[in-house]
């Protein structure tokens, strides 16, 4: 009997007694009573043919208790890492005797940055993620050691930079010099891999809203990254999550910082064009 991946996925879904599908809710996300987040948006033009009606933030797929944790910056445990990021921002490191602040002044100068990354960097001749840009700056302008790609320090810095764009719509460019990388990412997204022969789309496009065991499947958006996960009580970066996801489909996973994950990050980010930057968000 040929047991293909969709049957496996379907079997897992139906095996949960009672709830086979749990619709994402209609709640409103307003942070600190001020920052109104756009957590649902129409499909970006490039997704016209996609098997879904609208794009939604992962926030909608979490329980009420988890959602509440993101609504106040003092309930959001991720914010303590923004504080740590601020210390890193002001710390002088490396051969040039500079800190981030030496050139960029306050973190507020990063407003709008997170919303457009990953993006094409003309000088480097490639698409760069936020992490790559941070490390480039550290090595070239500070003469400092790069942060580990998915390290705590990188996550703290990403969180500090993300906070400056909170509430702003994600708007990554997919045309021009970035197009080739974007196409590669899209191909990766829709290609089945691993023992379970699953592609990202099998779960996150075809089956979001369903329960996979006790997990409420989201659309796999990354507008909320870096995210504080209840599961490991710390900030998680995009590539760390990609690596985990690929491993969970029992496929040989790519390395954080690899060309594949950079392309995938650009593509997945573009699937969220229109949703607000939420980082640092709170998820399970």
């Amino acid at each position: 009997m040929k047991f293909n991946a969709m049957t496996a996925v379907a079997a897992l879904m139906l095996a949960v007694p009672g709830v086979a599908s749990a619709d994402p809710d209609d709640d409103n996300l307003v942070v600190n009573g001020e920052i109104e987040m756009t957590t649902k948006a129409p499909l970006p033009a490039h997704m016209e043919d996609a098997n879904m009606d609208q794009i939604m933030s992962g926030w909608h797929f979490r329980s009420d208790e988890t959602q509440a944790l993101q609504m106040d910056d003092f309930d959001n445990s991720g914010m303590i890492f923004v504080d740590a990021g601020r210390d890193q921002w002001n710390a002088v490191e490396g051969s040039e005797g500079n800190s981030c602040a030496s050139c960029h002044e306050g973190p507020e100068s990063m407003e709008g940055v997170r919303a457009v990354y990953p993006k094409w960097d003309e000088e480097a001749g490639e698409v760069q993620t936020l992490a790559m840009q941070v490390n480039d700056c550290r090595e070239e302008n500070m003469g400092a050691e790069p942060y580990g790609y998915t390290s705590g320090q990188m996550a703290n810095m990403e969180a500090l930079i993300s906070v400056q764009s909170r509430g702003m719509p994600v708007d990554v460019a997919i045309d021009g010099p970035a197009k080739e990388t974007w196409e590669k990412g899209k191909e990766l997204y829709y290609t089945r891999t691993g023992q379970l022969e699953l592609s990202c789309a099998n779960c996150h496009e075809d089956n979001y809203g369903m329960m996979i065991r006790a997990d409420h499947l989201s659309q796999g958006q990354i507008n909320g990254f870096p995210t504080y996960r209840l599961k490991n009580a710390k900030l998680n970066t995009v590539h760390a999550r990609f690596k985990g996801c690929v491993r969970d489909t029992r496929a040989e996973t790519y390395k954080p910082g690899s060309d594949e994950f950079v392309a995938l990050e650009l593509y997945v980010a573009s699937r969220g064009n229109g949703l607000s930057v939420e980082g640092p968000s709170v998820r399970n």
């Binding site: 065991r213 006790a214 997990d215 489909t249």
Partner: peptide, 8 residues
């Protein structure tokens, strides 16, 4: 307290 799915 449940065991998660793919999210782990």
């Amino acid at each position: 307290v449940t065991i998660g799915g793919c999210g782990g």
